[in-house]
């Protein structure tokens, strides 16, 4: 089981955590909701919870709970610029389909 970050994503996460002044790392997760069943979760982490797995890339920690890991295994997180907007993008091999907006997906 593994989750990875691109260098661009790792750099941004590091900066964001430095700006925030605290935080262990970045939480990736999924939750059941949205128009296509599942939606991604992206949050700062202040404390680890039971069952969390921790992955590291360039000293940036990515934390995933056991429930989400099933659906995120092999996922790569990237940071991209799209016109004026910028943000994180998931490349998830488990994902079969997504809604038009790309915010929710099915496995």
């Amino acid at each position: 089981m593994a989750i990875s970050l691109t260098d661009a994503a790792a750099n941004r996460v590091r900066t964001f955590i430095e700006n925030r002044g605290k935080g262990l790392g970045l939480r990736l997760g999924v939750k059941t909701t949205g128009c296509s069943g599942l939606a991604y979760v992206l949050e700062f982490v202040d404390e680890l919870e039971e069952g969390d797995s921790v992955f590291e890339h360039q000293d940036v920690k990515v934390i995933v709970d056991a429930k989400s890991l099933v659906y995120l295994d092999g996922t790569q997180l990237d940071f991209v610029k799209n016109g004026l907007n910028e943000g994180f993008e998931f490349t998830n091999p488990n994902q079969k389909d997504e809604c038009g907006c790309g915010e929710s997906f099915t496995v």
């Binding site: 939606a39 949050e43 994180f88 998931f90 997504e98």
Partner: peptide
């Protein structure tokens, strides 16, 4: 694909919200 931002712990919103 929509671009996501990092939320505070426990503050992730639902899609389109």
């Amino acid at each position: 694909m929509a671009l996501l931002q990092i939320a505070e712990p426990g503050q992730s919103t639902n899609p389109h919200e």
